[in-house]
Design a protein around this nucleic acid. Structure first.
Length: 587
DNA sequence: GCCGTTTTCGGCCCGACTGTTTTCAGTCG
């Protein structure tokens, strides 16, 4: 059973507790939800942690749940879970993925309408709703029937509770709505909130905060956004709509005097806020989105800086707000100074259209175009890293000449464009760990990025050995998109990361943060671990066209979420320093 | 069921919105 499966099992158990007796089992519900989050966010498979005796190191996994997991891994099932689920029809659980349907609603619908088959429950419920059966159930009415039909339609379009969009996509939608909202005179200030403001790799809903003295006008303007499907709700200070692309946008409004509290509250994360509130309570302060209460007196807080200062700590960058120790550091005023986009001096993983007949896709712009774009972004240097020439279609000698031809072009452009260019390649790590390029061709390069592009499902030991073997070559300075994950499409490959970190630290190799929208790889949690192990990071865009160089900011966001400072990132160094690092140990 | 700068017991964040309920339950963030 993998982490995702375990997490969803735990959510079912939480729901089952809620259905059985919400009051009695309230804290068990919370515990299983928290455990589900912990397993889902873990960078190691729970099964591996169990084998190593480290399950209880995950926050939210204690003795009891560790024992349940042990039983699960040993026997494939858990007696206690069967006990809790007893009396709850299986049809309930698929419904929990439908927006607006929680445990209580699902249970009522399934039992009263007798929806027994979990395979067809979604379809059966829709059929029942269309026949008007839901409206007849006590505590339901025609409006809730309609709402459920709407939710089922959304579900059909793939909008389940766990479905998330990649960060850059959410960023773009938010940008459009923000531009629109800024045209409303009542809007004094507007910011993103939630996972979008924290720059998490995947985003559920788009949340926005507005500072205004006239919330009514703001909500009304928001409701007139032209590219929406329909309004979901509209209250006095919050409103939501669904875009024509089916994405939910939530808006919250507060007067400017209270904007800081609003921003803080809805930026989250939930875990950060819970820890912050608990800490504040110990100082006699109660926090909410409206402000801070001390005894019977409440205070509005205009800025986030003031909000954190009032509790007695430094302002914490949104990317760090995950309850991973940032609050303790902020109290001591020892937060690290995180890397910023303006610190980046060059992009090293880019693909031009120069045709070296590569193993994978070419870029869309010429080397001069790429160089000009890099210069316009203020970079000192750029790395050209096309895929290696195909080894099945060429002899080594042909490859050598293809690379030589490209090198000549790079030399020419470097002179005319006056930006430093590096002759790199992105080289496939073959299934046995060999590089897909021979020694003679490798000698033509300033350095190489090695990447896994095939055989993702090899066993952990094999994959680790394979990566280490490729990194052992002196020309290979960077491991490209290390986990190979594609957000919403492909899981990370299963490697022994601590071992790879150790090797990189010892041999001065860099791990890439690939800023490509559906990669964002290394994932932030592994970045944090790599940095703790003393490994250097490089942030690249993997651009296949010059306009894509702009996605660098998302790579920087991943680095910030991993608590990286400029010193941890090799491409924040000046040209000379970076060149020295690249040529390390090559002679 | 978890957890500890109130540490092995006794807490566990706080509020908005909707629908159908005449005072609140359910969902969401």
């Amino acid at each position: 059973m993998n982490n995702n499966q375990i997490a969803s099992l735990f959510r079912e158990i939480a729901a089952a507790y809620g259905i059985k007796d919400e009051k009695k089992f309230y804290f068990q519900m919370l515990a299983y939800q928290k455990a589900a989050d912990a397993i889902e966010q873990s960078t190691s498979e729970a099964k591996d942690l169990y084998d190593e005796g480290k399950l209880e190191e995950l926050p939210g996994i204690g003795k009891t749940i560790a024992l349940r997991l042990e039983e699960l891994f040993k026997t494939g099932k858990v007696k206690h879970f069967a006990e809790i689920k007893k009396g709850i029809p299986e049809g309930v659980f698929p419904l929990l993925q439908v927006p607006k349907i929680g445990p209580k609603t699902a249970f009522k619908l399934v039992t009263i309408l007798k929806l027994k088959n979990p395979q067809t429950v979604i379809y059966d419920l829709e059929k029942g709703a269309k026949l008007g059966k839901i409206a007849k159930i006590p505590t339901f009415g025609t409006k809730s029937q309609e709402e459920i039909l709407n939710a089922l339609a959304q579900y059909r379009e793939g909008r389940t509770k766990s479905a998330r969009m990649v960060l850059p996509f959410a960023y773009e939608i938010a940008g459009k709505v923000i531009d629109y909202m800024k045209k409303c005179k009542a809007v004094k200030q507007i910011e993103t909130l939630g996972s979008l403001r924290r720059m998490v790799a995947t985003i559920g809903d788009i949340d926005l905060a507005v500072a205004s003295h006239n919330p009514k006008e703001v909500i009304s303007w928001f409701g007139k956004y032209p590219y929406k499907e329909r309004i979901i709700e509209a209250g006095p200070e919050t409103s939501s709509f669904l875009t024509s692309g089916g994405k939910q946008v939530d808006l919250m409004v507060q007067p400017p005097e209270g904007f800081g509290a609003l921003l803080q509250h809805f930026t989250g994360s939930k875990e950060h806020n819970i820890r912050l509130r608990t800490y504040a309570l110990s100082k006699g302060l109660s926090l909410s989105e409206h402000g801070i209460k001390k005894g019977l007196k409440s205070y509005q807080i205009p800025t986030e800086e003031e909000f954190y200062e009032t509790i007695g700590m430094q302002w914490i960058p949104p990317e760090m707000r995950e309850d991973k120790g940032e609050i303790e550091l902020a109290v001591k005023r020892e937060l690290p100074k995180l890397v910023e986009l303006k610190d980046i001096k060059g992009d090293l993983h880019t693909h031009s259209s120069f045709n070296i007949e590569p193993s994978h896709d070419l870029g869309g712009n010429s080397i001069p175009e790429m160089a000009q774009k890099a210069k316009s972004l203020g970079y000192e240097y750029l790395g050209l890293a096309e895929h290696n020439p195909s080894i099945t279609n060429h002899t080594p000698e042909q490859n050598y000449h293809l690379i030589l031809k490209r090198n000549n072009e790079i030399d020419r452009v470097e002179k005319t464009e006056k930006v430093h260019l590096f002759k790199l390649l992105e080289i496939d790590i073959l299934a046995d760990g060999q590089l897909a390029l021979d020694e003679k061709s490798l000698s033509l390069l300033d350095g190489a990025i090695a990447s896994v592009h095939s055989s993702f499902t090899q066993p952990k030991a094999k994959i680790t050995e394979r990566i280490l073997k490729s990194l052992s070559h002196p020309k290979v300075r960077i491991l490209g998109h290390p986990t190979g994950r594609l957000l919403n499409q492909r899981e990370s490959l299963d490697a022994d990361w601590p071992q790879i970190f150790k090797f990189c630290k010892e041999h001065n190799k860099a791990l890439e943060i690939n800023a490509w929208p559906n990669r964002l790889d290394l994932p932030d949690t592994l970045v944090r671990q790599a940095l703790k192990a003393g490994v250097k990071i490089i942030i690249d865009t993997d651009s296949h066209a010059m306009d894509q160089l702009a996605v660098m900011k998302f790579g920087v966001a991943v680095a910030r979420r991993g608590w990286a400072t400029a010193k941890d990132i090799v491409n924040t160094q000046s040209y000379e320093k970076f060149r020295q690092w690249l040529l390390y140990n090559q002679v």
